[in-house]
Computed example of a mutant assay.
Amino acid sequence: MTATIAYDRTVSNLIDELSATGHVTHRPYRKTSVTLHHNGGRLSHQGVLDVWRTRPASAHFDVDATGAVAQYVKVNEYAWAVGDTAGNRSTISIEMADATLAPGWTIAETTWKNAARLAGWHFAKVIGERPSKNNLFYHHHWSSTACAGPYMDKIYDKVLAAAQEAYDHFKDAHHIPGPVTEPFPGASFFHTGRKSPVIAAMHHRLVTEGCNRYQSNAAPDVWGPGDVKSYAAWQAKLGFTGDDANGTPGKTSWDKLHVPDV
């Protein structure tokens, strides 16, 4: 199954089901903007997919009436979304469920705020620029349509501010591999999955120090928990020495981390 984005909230995975419709172009492009749409209905994630089974259209994401997120198209691919070739190549499209139908086409606050948050994540993690009026668009930016609707037009400044707030949060945040299910230093914490004691202790150290000493642009799968590259990267960043090359923690690391015997 094709994986969804590494978002910090649950993302329902409908990528392969949308791909089966043929309504997506599996070719990667560099993304430089995010575009918001409305469903034109009070649709669930499955309801959106059902529409696209027969209508030659797609988008990367949908945010439903509760604020929950689903992904249909890989981020770097060409969704059939904005009615403009250049736009489909360069933008990440996010659909939103309507709260009411015509003529207002209102969208619930929880829906548009979660769409803005998702947009902010993409600006921080994919696009690499802060959201602005030059890169956060509605569908009608690209083609002749009223989408994302008159209500969303009225609150664009609020949407942009929410996306900018999310961008600032995600830009400053540092991913801590997990999950952490018990407080440090409980014994069972050291024996969850592939996580070694020194990885667990480093995790705790990063959390308690607010990640202030750990700065990295590496993708999470490069320094995720349990592998030697991860261990070596964390060791170097935190200034540890005296450990075996195979990732076995040496005395210096144990002393610095104050790891208890378990």
Rank of each mutant, 00 (worst) to 15 (best):
T2M: 07
A3L: 10
I5H: 13
D8V: 08
E17R: 10
E17A: 11
S19P: 02
A20Q: 06
T21Y: 06
G22F: 02
V24Q: 08
R30Y: 14
T32G: 10
H37F: 08
H38S: 14
G41I: 00
S44H: 01
H45Q: 06
R53D: 11
A65Q: 07
A68M: 08
Q71V: 00
Y78C: 08
D84G: 12
G87T: 01
N88A: 00
S90L: 07
S93P: 03
I94C: 01
I94Q: 00
A97K: 04
T100C: 07
P103Q: 15
G104Q: 13
T110F: 01
A115C: 02
A115G: 06
A115R: 04
K125S: 10
S132K: 00
S132Y: 00
T145A: 05
A148Q: 12
D157K: 06
K171P: 02
H174R: 10
G186P: 14
F190W: 01
H191Q: 14
R194T: 13
K195Q: 15
V207P: 00
R213S: 15
S216Y: 00
A218K: 04
A219Y: 10
W223I: 07
G226Q: 07
G226V: 05
Q235N: 12
A236D: 08
L238Y: 04
G239Q: 04
T241I: 11
H258M: 02
V259M: 04
